[in-house]
Computed example of a mutant assay.
Amino acid sequence: MKYFACFLTMKDEEKSRKYRPQHLDFLETMRQEKKVLMNGRFTDGAGGLIIYRANSLDEAIDMAEQDPYIHVGAREYEIHEWDLVSEYNFD
């Protein structure tokens, strides 16, 4: 399994507020399916970060594009494969 860092850059604050519950529900579902390792917002309001678990970049992009924030144009995303180094086992 590979890890992918997905930066969700703020595009529309009003849409982000409006669709936040759907975005959080999406993340919870993905977390339960073990497709999201971790996520969080940037405290400066610039957006947020999601760490996806996927077999390929294409699979991670597909996950990112399912996010309600992306569908409604509240956020833009940039995604990169991430070489996780940690003393913890997340599998």
Rank of each mutant, 00 (worst) to 15 (best):
D67E: 11
R17I: 07
R20Y: 15
T9V: 13
S86R: 01
D12S: 00
T43V: 12
E65Y: 01
G48W: 00
N39P: 10
S56M: 01
P68M: 12
D58R: 13
Y3I: 02
S16Q: 06
K18W: 11
S16I: 11
L57G: 00
I79C: 08
N55S: 14
Q22D: 11
V36K: 06
L8V: 02
P68A: 12
F26W: 15
R53H: 07
R53S: 02
K11R: 15
F26Y: 15
N39R: 12
E13L: 15
S16P: 02
Y52D: 00
L37G: 04
P68L: 06
E28V: 08
F7P: 00
P21E: 08
N55T: 10
A46K: 15
I51G: 00
I51Q: 05
E14S: 11
R53D: 01
L37W: 04
P68S: 10
R41K: 13
H80L: 15
E59V: 08
E28Q: 14
F42E: 08
M1R: 04
K15N: 10
V36Q: 00
T29W: 09
Y77T: 09
K11M: 13
G48Q: 03
K15Y: 14
S16F: 09
K35F: 02
T9R: 09
R20S: 06
V36G: 00
Q22V: 11
K15H: 12
L57N: 01
S56L: 07
L84P: 01
D44W: 05
K18H: 09
K2V: 03
D83R: 09
I70E: 04
A74C: 10
E87G: 06
L49P: 03
R20N: 11
F4T: 01
G47T: 06
H80Y: 14
H71Q: 08
M10F: 09
I50V: 07
A74E: 07
E28C: 11
A5N: 03
E28I: 08
P68Y: 12
P21Q: 06
D67C: 10
F4C: 00
R17E: 08
F26H: 12
F7S: 02
F7C: 04
K35H: 07
H71P: 00
K34L: 12
G40C: 13
A60Q: 04
F7W: 13
